Simulated scan of single mutants.
Amino acid sequence: MDVPATLLEMPRWWHDAAGRTWLTRLPALVAERLRTWGLTADGPPWHGSNALVLPVRRGGEPLALRMSPPGDDVAGEAEALRLWDGRGTVRLLDVDADQGATLLERLDGDHTLAREPVGRAVEVLATLMVRLAVPVPERVRSTAEVAGAEVASFRRRWEAAGRPTPSAQLGRALAAARELAATDPGSTAVDADLHSEQVLRGGREPWLVVDPVLLRGDREHDLARVLWTRLEELPEDRDVRDAFDMAVSVAGVPRDRATSWVVVRSMSYLLWGLEHGLTTDPVRCRRLLDLFAG
């Protein structure tokens, strides 16, 4: 198996020596996993920004082998998939967290939600927010804890990044994060990495989430990501606001709280992007901050 050139070129590896080493070992790691789990390759691999997914068969059953790089929380992902147990997510069949390997049901890796018109994609993602909102143990990290961590770090990171936004936007993000951190977020599950590229065409259900990140609390937590990953397809400000309104309506979440999360997550990802040398995503986040933080 050849590692796709498009995976090798992902920004993930720019500052990740361990990840680049893993890429050189990946064909051997895949071959070992095929032997261990009694699988045969069944086509060329797919990939996202970091993991590789190879269509495989076990007997006559079509499955998918996912290989994740060092540093990815494969055990946490497996816990999340077990909790949802196929409700809006891909089904997990086996896992070797030490090797970064998971065996999953086969979805259509060539048809992500990113291929659908942006309005349809936002509607599907908002519907999935509701579908994924199942009871979750209190030990799972809450969205309130996420907001609290942003309160503690925003100003320091903003200063270190050269004050990349107007100070009023930082103030708005801090106020929103404090409010979100101080409010009980409830006890239902939320995917903290929900966007079009992470949702594939399924068979049991029309669309299924892959690679979810489990949190407990506000289902609107990652609405900003829903928007910024499709922002170029929303050229006018009113287009962005219409997409936001649709998501709020379909997901059935409070508009003011959803606005606060868009502000907090946009500031957080803006700073993270600058810290990691990204260029496109910080521009997207600035646009959301201009719209929702004034």
Rank of each mutant, 00 (worst) to 15 (best):
P254N: 05
A247I: 09
R201E: 11
A182N: 06
F292E: 03
E197V: 10
R255G: 12
P27I: 04
R238D: 13
A126Q: 06
R33D: 14
D72V: 08
M67R: 07
L29T: 11
V136Q: 01
L208Q: 09
D218S: 00
V253E: 02
E236K: 10
R115D: 15
P135Y: 00
G277V: 03
R58G: 04
T40H: 13
P254Q: 03
A149N: 02
V56G: 06
P70W: 03
R284G: 12
V151E: 08
G202D: 04
G109H: 00
D256V: 06
V74M: 03
H221M: 09
V124L: 08
P69C: 11
L231H: 00
A175K: 04
V95T: 02
L170I: 00
L113K: 14
T183P: 07
A97I: 01
R230H: 11
P44T: 08
G217H: 01
D256M: 01
L278W: 14
G171L: 09
L29F: 06
L170M: 00
L93R: 15
E232P: 11
T188D: 01
G71Y: 10
G71F: 01
V263T: 11
A28E: 14
A182P: 10
V134L: 09
V3A: 04
L214M: 11
T112D: 14
V209H: 04
A152N: 08
E9A: 15
W228H: 06
R58Y: 08
P235G: 03
V146D: 13
R139W: 10
V213S: 12
L270Q: 10
R82W: 02
P45M: 01
R265S: 05
L39P: 01
W37Y: 14
A64E: 10
R141V: 11
V130D: 06
V53Q: 07
T127M: 07
P206W: 13
L174H: 02
E232V: 04
A101G: 05
V209W: 01
E232M: 00
P70H: 06
E32R: 12
T127F: 12
M67E: 13
V250A: 00
L23P: 09
G148Y: 09
V118E: 07
S153P: 00
T89W: 04
R265F: 10
V226Y: 01
W228S: 05
P27T: 01
R120N: 06
A247H: 13
R257A: 08
A224R: 00
R115V: 14
